[in-house]
């Protein structure tokens, strides 16, 4: 089944058009990456899917349901977003417990105590962190909270916006392992935005390379690993990632 289908998507901020005719499909259970440099429009695509960039034309459908231009509850149950910076995406004056319970309250779901407990366990957060505030947690722990917040509604798809770029390499490894394990255990679909190609190699099955608001290439991750991307721009990106010395 197709988890996400995007066709001929043009997104604008005011008068300026940010993306031009974006189109790709993500199968259920697949992990798909959008790569490209800042300003290429990759995050904007995630925002349009999530309902945070409202002015677009074309079509977006998630699990067969066409997306509206705003935020709706049924969609939120299916698909959640994890942001780049765990220092900025958690409310500084809410405890982990409050952050994780809020989606449940909004959606009128009961037994929040158990659900919070369960989700914290699945992202590897110890019970003792439950009543702490974000400033009492490390960066990696905060990103775990952000992932738990996304997972608590049991969505089928996660939109990941550079989920590890604000973290140290060793913490990045922990979060990448976590994302990989969660996907395996819960059969999640990922759409991840990143500019880090090695992260794509580790976590994704396919990728789309974006530049200046257009998709220039869609490729299999094996092509990336073998250095067989076709488009000149994709090759340039690969070269930058590989120019640093290898093991």
């Amino acid at each position: 089944m197709t988890a996400l289908a995007i066709d001929n998507l043009d997104i604008s901020y005011g008068d300026s058009k940010v993306t031009h005719g974006i189109g790709f499909e993500v199968a259920e259970g697949e992990s798909f990456a959008l790569v490209g440099e800042s300003g290429s429009g990759k995050t904007t695509v995630l925002k349009a899917i999530a309902g945070m960039a409202k002015s677009w034309t074309g079509s977006i459908s998630v699990f067969g349901e066409p997306r509206t231009h705003g935020i709706d509850r049924a969609f939120a149950r299916q698909c959640q977003m994890v942001f780049q910076d765990p220092y900025g995406s958690l409310h500084p004056r809410k405890t982990v417990d409050a952050t994780l319970s809020e989606p449940l309250t909004i959606h009128g779901i009961g037994n929040s105590g158990e659900r919070v407990d369960e989700v914290m366990q699945s992202v590897g957060l110890d019970r003792r962190f439950r009543f702490r505030f974000p400033h009492q947690l490390s960066g990696g722990q905060r990103q775990r909270v952000a992932i738990a917040r996304a997972l608590i509604l049991k969505p089928r798809m996660l939109l990941l916006d550079e989920p590890t770029s604000a973290l140290d390499v060793s913490v990045q490894a922990e979060i990448l392992n976590l994302l990989k394990r969660l996907r395996r255990e819960q059969g999640l679909t990922y759409l991840m935005v990143t500019h880090n190609l090695p992260v794509v190699s580790f976590l994704c099955d396919r990728l789309a390379v974006m530049r200046h608001g257009r998709v220039v290439e869609v490729a299999d991750v094996d092509q990336l690993k073998r250095g067989e991307l076709v488009d000149p721009y994709s090759r340039e990106l690969t070269r930058f990632s590989a120019s640093l010395p290898k093991t």
């Binding site: 590897g124 110890d126 490894a173 990448l176 990989k180 090695p198």
Partner: peptide, 24 residues
Amino acid sequence: LASIPRLDESRDELPVLERTGAST
């Protein structure tokens, strides 16, 4: 060094550093 993913990554899991107070 080991915890950095590579462009031609084939490991199923990345090794992580042991640290005190961390939980996986």
